[in-house]
C-alpha cells in the first residue's frame, strides 16, 4: 500500500516534471509597471526611429503603466553619450535598458554597474562584443548568414570577379564588425576566389564623411567594382557619391539600405541590389524581450520560449558568434532590387 502511494507520488512528480521540461511557451502577462529606456546608437537615424515605433507599439499592447523613454546621444558624442545614459539609467533605477551598442566593449563597465543596480540590459541591432554586462541580445539576423548574403550580392554585381571595398559605420560598431568578419569568412569560399576585398573604411555613420570616404575609395582603387556598405547611412551616401560623379556604370553600391532611401538609386542602377530587415519589428521584439526579462517572467536562460505578440514565438539560444552569450534570432531579411523596391518604399 505504502509502496503504491509512493509509486503514485513518484509518477505524479514525474508527470509534472515532464510537463515542466517540455519547454512551455511563456505568455507574458501584461500590465506590469516597468520603466524602460530605448537607447539607440544616436538620434536622428530613420531606422532607429522605426525601432522606437515598434517598441511604442509593444509598450501599448502590453499595457505597461511605466514609462518608455527613447533617449540617445548626438552622433559626434556617441560613445561617451551612451556610457552617460547607461550610467544615468542605473541611477534612475530603470527596469531595463534596450541598447544598440556603439561603444564596443567600452560600454561594459557602465552596463555591469547598471546590472548590479538591478537594471536588465537587452541589446538589439548591435550587441556588446564580449557579451559582458548583457542579459540577452535580440539579433535582427544571423550574423554569419548576413556575411554570405553580402558576399553573394558582391558576386552577382561583379559577375564573379573584381575588386570590392567596404564602407562601414564606426570602427567600434560591433554589429558591422561582426558582419564584415562574417563576409571575409564567406569570401574564402571557392565561389568567391576571384573577388578581392581591397579595403575597409569607416564613414562614422555620418552622411558627409561617408560620401567623402566613398569618393576616396574610387580614387585609391581605380579598378574598384563594388562598394559594400553594411549601414543604411553609408550605402545611401556612397550611392549618392557615385551618382553625383557619374560613376554608376563603373562602381556599384550594395549593402544594407532602407528601401525608401534607396529607391531612386536602385532604379537608376547605382545600387541595383541591397538587403535589410524590418526595424519596426526589431523594436517590437526587443521590447517584448526586455519587458519579459525585467518583469521576471523570463529568466533570460537558454531554451526559454515566449510569445512576442503579433510576431509569434521566439526562443533564447546561445549566440554562435559570441560563445557564452545569449541571443534571440529575429530574421528574416529581404533582398531588394528593381522588382520589389518600389512596393517596399511606400
Amino acid at each position: 500500500m505504502k509502496s503504491l502511494k509512493l509509486l503514485g507520488l513518484a509518477s505524479a512528480l514525474l508527470m509534472s516534471s515532464v510537463s515542466f521540461g517540455a519547454a512551455d511557451t511563456i505568455t507574458l502577462e501584461s500590465g506590469k509597471d516597468i520603466n524602460m529606456v530605448l537607447l539607440p546608437k544616436f538620434l536622428g537615424i530613420l531606422v532607429f526611429d522605426q525601432a522606437n515605433d515598434g517598441a511604442q507599439e509593444a509598450h501599448k499592447e502590453l499595457k505597461n503603466p511605466g514609462e518608455l523613454l527613447f533617449v540617445g546621444p548626438t552622433p559626434e558624442n556617441s560613445v561617451a553619450g551612451q556610457i552617460e545614459i547607461m550610467t544615468t539609467s542605473a541611477t534612475q533605477g530603470q527596469g531595463a535598458v534596450m541598447l544598440s551598442n556603439n561603444a564596443g566593449d567600452q560600454i561594459v563597465p557602465s552596463a555591469k554597474a547598471a546590472q548590479a543596480a538591478g537594471t536588465k540590459i537587452v541589446t538589439w541591432d548591435s550587441p556588446i562584443p564580449s557579451g559582458e554586462g548583457e542579459d540577452v541580445f535580440v539579433a535582427q539576423v544571423d550574423f554569419g548568414s548576413i556575411g554570405t548574403v553580402m558576399a553573394d550580392m558582391a558576386h552577382s554585381l561583379l559577375d564573379g570577379s573584381g575588386q570590392m571595398a567596404v564602407l562601414s559605420a564606426t570602427p567600434d560598431a560591433s554589429n558591422q564588425n561582426a558582419w564584415i568578419a562574417a563576409m571575409k569568412e564567406a569570401l574564402k569560399g571557392d565561389k568567391y576566389a576571384k573577388i578581392e576585398l581591397v579595403d575597409v573604411v569607416y564613414g562614422n555613420d555620418q552622411a558627409e564623411v561617408s560620401y567623402n570616404r566613398a569618393l576616396a575609395l574610387v580614387d585609391k582603387y581605380p579598378d574598384l567594382g563594388v562598394i559594400m556598405s553594411p549601414t543604411t547611412v553609408g550605402i545611401q551616401a556612397a550611392a549618392k557619391a557615385m551618382q553625383d560623379e557619374g560613376l554608376c556604370d563603373q562602381v556599384k553600391v550594395s549593402g544594407l539600405g532602407l528601401p525608401a532611401e534607396m529607391l531612386s538609386y536602385t532604379l537608376n542602377g547605382c545600387a541595383p541590389e541591397f538587403t535589410l530587415w524590418d526595424f519596426r519589428d526589431l523594436g517590437y521584439l526587443t521590447y517584448y524581450t526586455a519587458y519579459g526579462v525585467a518583469s521576471g517572467q523570463l529568466k533570460g536562460e537558454i531554451g526559454e520560449t515566449f510569445t512576442a505578440g503579433r510576431m509569434g514565438d521566439y526562443t533564447i539560444e546561445e549566440d554562435p558568434g559570441r560563445p557564452g552569450s545569449k541571443r534571440i534570432l529575429m530574421g528574416p531579411f529581404t533582398i531588394y532590387n528593381k522588382d520589389n523596391v518600389e512596393a517596399a518604399a511606400k
Partner: peptide, 15 residues
C-alpha cells in the same frame, strides 16, 4: 548636465 540627464534631457538640447 547630471540634472538634465536625470530628467531625460539628452542629446542636442543638453548641448
Amino acid at each position: 548636465r547630471n540634472g538634465m540627464a536625470l530628467m531625460n534631457i539628452t542629446g542636442h538640447i543638453q548641448t
